[in-house]
Amino acid sequence: MKTSRTSLVLVNGTVILLAAIWTIPTLGLFITSFRTKAAITESGWWTVLTNPHGGFSLDNYQNVIFGGDGLGTAFLNTLAVTIPAVVIPILIAAFAAYGFAWMSFPGKRILFITVVALLVVPLQISLIPILKAYLAVNLNGTFLAIWLAHAGFGLALATYLLYNYISQLPKDILESAYIDGASHFQTFTRLILPLSTPALASFAIFQFLWVWNDLLVAQTFLGTNKDVAVMTSRLLNIVGSRGQDWQLLTAGAFVSMLVPVAVFLALQRFFVRGMMAGSVKG
């Protein structure tokens, strides 16, 4: 290596500068979320760094979670939407992936080609027909409606990813299971599911972040009614109606980021793997 000292300083300097640029906007929001409304409008958040003169409080969080904007309820709603919307498609996709990988049946190829073709289909194409169908059976605005929608939109990717993993499992393991008299169902539940944990976890995290952070599907099938609305919907509503109330917006935005950022930091390895495998979602 002929990397000289000056170029190392240059590289480190650039990298630190970039990391700072990437972090400062979030830092600004974080600091602002603890300032009073008066303090926010009187001076930029950065003045706090040189002159920490008070004007701090936890009221913003209290108001936004328990107050009229009900972000506390929205938080619970988001949880209620996200957990089943992650688990249901994984289970269904795992069965399908096993079927595609280790069973033979007529039409298998054309069915799988359909799955591949559906990978990048923009979900906008489905919104109106599904909305009409939901309205016809009085399902719109319910959690069930949005779970199934998220399951439908995530399923092509889930099947494709899990197929890639399950079809690569060593053939002899499965064959010895069949020779021991295990049925496909037993092989799947006892052998394939445990062996596929890494792939299942990767997709789970990918889908978790996707559903948690989603706005469009939630706006369409769950709506903006406070009883059921998720956090992204509520935040959009506050932006639209009271975009200058920074004390609410900043605290609210942070509440909504809490879980995904924690998941991200704790499970970064799986997250990266899921990202890499899942980089073609429609």
């Binding site: 989603d214 706005l215 992204t232 935040l235 935005a253 909504s256 980021m257 950022v261 991200f264």
Partner: peptide, 14 residues
Amino acid sequence: MAISFVGAAIIWRF
């Protein structure tokens, strides 16, 4: 990457 686009937009509106 872990932050929703809605959250990101609020950060940048500021």
